Simulated scan of single mutants.
Amino acid sequence: MHAQIVLFDGFDPLDVVAPYEVLYAGGTASGGAVTVELVSAEGPRDVVSGTGGLVLRATAALDPARAGLVLVPGASGRVGQPGEVPDQDHDAGAGAGAGEWQQDEFIPVLLGRTLTTGLPALLAAAKDNPEVTLSAVCGGSLVLAMAGLLAGRHVTTHHMGLDMLDATGVHAVRARVVDDGDIVTGAGVTSGLDLGLYLLEREVGPRIAHAVEELFAHERRGTVWRPEGPVPAAL
């Protein structure tokens, strides 16, 4: 499995680094069955995160034709009001190019600004590729939802963004990890560890995932929610 983790201006570093390290370690443990790289819509470039100006380098352009996994992180910045949706013609900075943003902007604004780049079209092409699984951590689910790619699907995100998911026609699920087939999502920032481990288990096997779990001294939390089985009665 090849994983492409997307960088965009204002991304949350932990949303990227946690699954990157898990998947990279899974590749080592599996003898190369998993590979991972950092990409951007624009191609190779330094990308500034929303946390203290930390920079990570995208080494390639996102390739929606490449089989495997495409993972979208959330953003790091000021926390907007619950239910706040950026105005794409003003708050989201219509026409803004790479790097044209300020530190400490509201997270919904940073997420919405991705819609003014080439990222939505690339993600749409990846979603149409039957050999690609789309994944997201935290606010990355909102990027996919605002791009119109998650309507009718079961998805999770940070608990503060669940109402925003509902507003886009998504079935928001309050769970640590949600597996809806070719869409697999994680909740708040540290869930990137759990998401990465689950993806290893799903794609490579539980023995590889367990070896990485032990290496990182991290015990996964919560049940992976799937749209299967009987609907539970009210508790």
Rank of each mutant, 00 (worst) to 15 (best):
D180F: 11
G74F: 03
Y20T: 04
E100C: 00
F8K: 02
D182V: 13
V70G: 01
S135V: 09
G169R: 03
V184M: 05
R66Q: 10
L23P: 07
H90F: 10
A3V: 10
L110Y: 04
R57T: 13
R226M: 02
E100D: 15
V55E: 08
G205S: 09
L235G: 11
A124T: 07
Q103M: 12
V155N: 03
L197M: 05
L165A: 08
A211I: 02
T168G: 00
G27F: 06
D194I: 03
V16A: 07
V173P: 07
E214P: 01
I107G: 07
G229T: 05
L23S: 05
A211T: 15
G169H: 06
V39C: 00
D12H: 14
P232T: 12
M1T: 08
V16Q: 09
T133W: 04
T59W: 00
M160Q: 12
E42K: 06
V143E: 01
T185F: 14
S76I: 01
L195G: 03
T59G: 12
E213C: 01
S49E: 03
M160G: 06
E201R: 15
V155W: 08
D89N: 12
W225T: 15
G118D: 10
E105C: 04
T117V: 12
T114S: 04
P120A: 11
Q4M: 11
F8P: 01
T28G: 02
C138I: 09
A98Y: 14
L62P: 07
A98G: 14
A124E: 07
P82I: 03
V231R: 12
L199K: 01
Y198N: 03
A187D: 10
V16R: 12
A217Y: 14
E37F: 10
P232G: 04
Q103W: 04
L7Q: 02
V173A: 00
M146F: 14
G52S: 02
V143W: 05
T59Y: 04
S191R: 04
G43L: 13
M160K: 15
R226S: 12
H2G: 00
T117I: 07
A41V: 12
E228V: 14
T116F: 02
T28V: 15
Y24G: 04
G77L: 07
L111T: 10
Q102R: 13
E214R: 05
G93Y: 01
T114H: 09
A65V: 00
V55A: 05
A98V: 12
D15T: 11
V173I: 15
A29N: 03
G112F: 12
S135Q: 02
V39Y: 00
T156S: 09
D163W: 06
G52N: 04
P120N: 08
G140A: 07
V212H: 02
A94K: 15
Q81M: 04
I107V: 15
L14M: 15
V170R: 03
A233N: 03
W101P: 08
L123I: 15
D89L: 13
V47T: 09
R153G: 03
L144H: 09
E228Y: 01
G148C: 09
L38R: 09
E84T: 11
A234F: 14
P86L: 15
A67D: 01
L165I: 09
P44Q: 13
G186K: 02
A33I: 08
T35F: 00
Y20C: 05
Q103H: 13
